[in-house]
């Protein structure tokens, strides 16, 4: 393509709109982060910097509730992300390295189903399902639901990565008498590592962040961090909620950043 003059491409005002867009996206997060360090008892006045609300999260009257919720959230996220990543890796191998087959489109449709069905509908359906088979709602029902809806989030980066790796590496290994299993574990898996890691991290964040489906299938007494936060927020936004929110949003941002840099690294060269 011939080089096109930048004057022809550029539109006046588009840069300002982009900057406005970034301000709108980040302002609420920055503001909440700032106010989580507020020394004041009220959320409106600013009285200087302090860590009291962070201390409150760990030692205050609600700390026990948040500790249990955090334990549930993180164990569910780790197990769900691990399981869905494993399932997604197998599925991607079949879809990308399995030649052409009839059920390909159907399989892809099934894998992306959780992305197409509105979340509230999935939530209602899952609740009804567990009710119909007589399964008591609690930790297990949350875990199973999370494994299911995390699969597409793990699948997309993994299959994208696999499509980018020529199968000549595995073919070469197998020409040199490696078994297919060896070619898979010694050649394909290491090359796939960036895709698998970023798939795992995205599934982890999606599980950690989920509110709607969890809220429907959790049953009485079992809370995750988002449902515990939602319960607190219904009585008004309190400073300790801002401290928890800041910690959670930092975790998400750190993990997405890792995922971004890992998926960018190219180890096929």
């Amino acid at each position: 393509m011939a080089h096109v003059n930048d004057n022809i491409k550029a539109y006046k005002g588009f840069r300002s709109i982009t900057l406005l867009c970034l301000v709108v996206l980040y302002a609420p997060l920055v503001i909440v982060t700032i106010y989580s360090f507020n020394a004041s008892q009220s959320i409106t006045n600013w009285e200087g910097i302090s860590l009291r609300w962070y201390a409150e999260v760990f030692t205050g009257p609600e700390s026990e509730k948040f500790k249990v919720a955090a334990f549930n959230s993180f164990t569910i996220a780790i197990i769900a992300a691990t399981a869905s990543t494993a399932i997604a890796t197998l599925a991607a191998t079949a879809m990308v390295r399995g030649g052409n087959f009839k059920l390909r489109t159907v399989s892809f449709g099934l894998i992306s189903l959780p992305l197409m069905v509105p979340e509230i509908v999935t939530a209602v359906a899952t609740l009804i399902f567990f009710n119909a088979i007589g399964f008591t709602r609690g930790y297990m029902t949350i875990l199973v639901a999370h494994i299911a809806f995390c699969i597409p989030f793990a699948y997309l980066p993994i299959s994208a990565r696999m499509q980018g790796i020529e199968d000549s590496f595995e073919q070469a290994a197998m020409d040199l008498y490696a078994t297919r299993r060896q070619a898979f574990t010694k050649i394909l898996m290491p090359l796939m590592a960036p895709g698998i890691i970023s798939g795992f991290l995205l599934a982890f964040i999606v599980s950690l962040d989920d509110f709607i489906i969890t809220n429907f299938v959790k049953g009485a007494g079992v809370e995750t961090l988002p449902t515990a936060i939602f319960g607190s927020v219904k009585q008004g936004i309190k400073p300790n909620i801002m401290a928890i929110s800041t910690m959670l949003l930092s975790i998400s941002i750190v993990m997405v950043t890792i995922s971004y840099f890992v998926s960018k690294s190219d180890n096929t060269k």
């Binding site: 302002a27 909440v32 106010y35």
Partner: peptide
């Protein structure tokens, strides 16, 4: 895309706070 990966509940609460 970064803000999208932050908990939707936290983003919505932050918006309300702002």
């Amino acid at each position: 895309t970064i803000p999208y990966w932050v908990n939707l509940l936290i983003r919505t609460v932050s918006m309300k706070f702002l």
